[in-house]
C-alpha cells in the first residue's frame, strides 16, 4: 500500500501515482518485444566478411593471350550466405593482363566509385564504368579527370606458380580515395 492511498485528502497524488505506474508498466512491457526485435535486427553488425587476401587460383597462364590486353575471369571460392555454405561459387571477377612475358596485373572489376561492374572497351583500349562514366587506363589509373571515381581501379596481388595464376582477391570500400579493405 502506498502512503498516498491512505490519505483521502490527496486524490490527485493518488491519481498521479497510478498514472505514473501505468505508464511505467506499459512502457516496460511494450519495450520487451521491441528490444528482442531490435537485438536480432542489429545482429548483422556482428558479422564480418571471411578474411580475404588468400590466394585463389583464377586461370592458367596459357589462358592469357596477348601482352597488354586485359581479359576477364571469375573468381571462384567458397562463400557463406547466412546458413548456406557454398563450396565453389563465383565471389567476384578480375581483369588479368600480361604486362610483359613474366608479370601479370590483376584489377578488381568493381568500380571504386559505387561498385558497378567496369567494362573493358577494346576499341578505345580503356576501362569504362557503365554507371557514372568513370574511365580508367589499362594500368587502372583514372583516365578522364572528370570521372567520379575517387581512386584508381583496385589492383590485387598476383602470384604465378607452375603456370597457374593465383590472385589475392579482395574487395575495397567504395566511394573513398583510400583503398580500405572491406571488413
Amino acid at each position: 500500500m502506498c502512503p498516498a492511498q491512505r490519505d483521502p485528502k490527496s486524490p490527485e497524488r493518488r491519481g498521479f501515482f497510478k498514472e505514473a505506474l501505468s505508464v511505467l508498466i506499459g512502457g516496460v512491457i511494450s519495450l520487451v518485444p521491441v528490444a528482442a526485435g531490435i537485438t536480432v535486427f542489429f545482429d548483422p553488425l556482428r558479422r564480418n566478411k571471411a578474411k580475404g587476401g588468400g590466394a585463389i587460383r583464377v586461370a592458367s597462364l596459357s589462358a592469357l593471350r596477348d601482352i597488354g590486353v586485359p581479359q576477364k575471369f571469375p573468381v571462384i571460392s567458397s562463400r557463406v550466405d547466412a546458413w548456406n555454405k557454398y563450396p565453389q561459387t563465383p565471389i567476384g571477377a578480375v581483369y588479368l593482363m600480361k604486362t610483359d612475358d613474366k608479370t601479370i596485373k590483376a584489377l578488381n572489376v568493381a568500380c571504386p566509385h559505387a561498385g558497378c561492374f567496369v567494362d573493358y572497351n577494346a576499341d578505345r583500349n580503356t576501362y569504362l564504368c557503365p554507371c557514372h562514366n568513370s574511365s580508367f587506363a589499362l594500368d587502372g589509373t583514372v583516365r578522364d579527370p572528370k570521372s567520379p571515381s575517387p581512386r584508381a581501379l583496385d589492383e590485387l596481388k598476383v602470384e604465378v606458380r607452375d603456370g597457374e595464376i593465383f590472385v589475392h582477391f579482395q574487395n575495397f570500400r567504395a566511394g573513398v580515395a583510400e583503398k580500405i579493405p572491406e571488413a
Partner: peptide, 14 residues
C-alpha cells in the same frame, strides 16, 4: 528459422 534460433543474437528470445 534455424539461423534465427541458433545463430542470431537474441533470436531464441524473439
Amino acid at each position: 528459422v534455424y539461423y534465427i534460433q541458433n545463430e542470431m543474437m537474441g533470436g531464441w528470445l524473439l
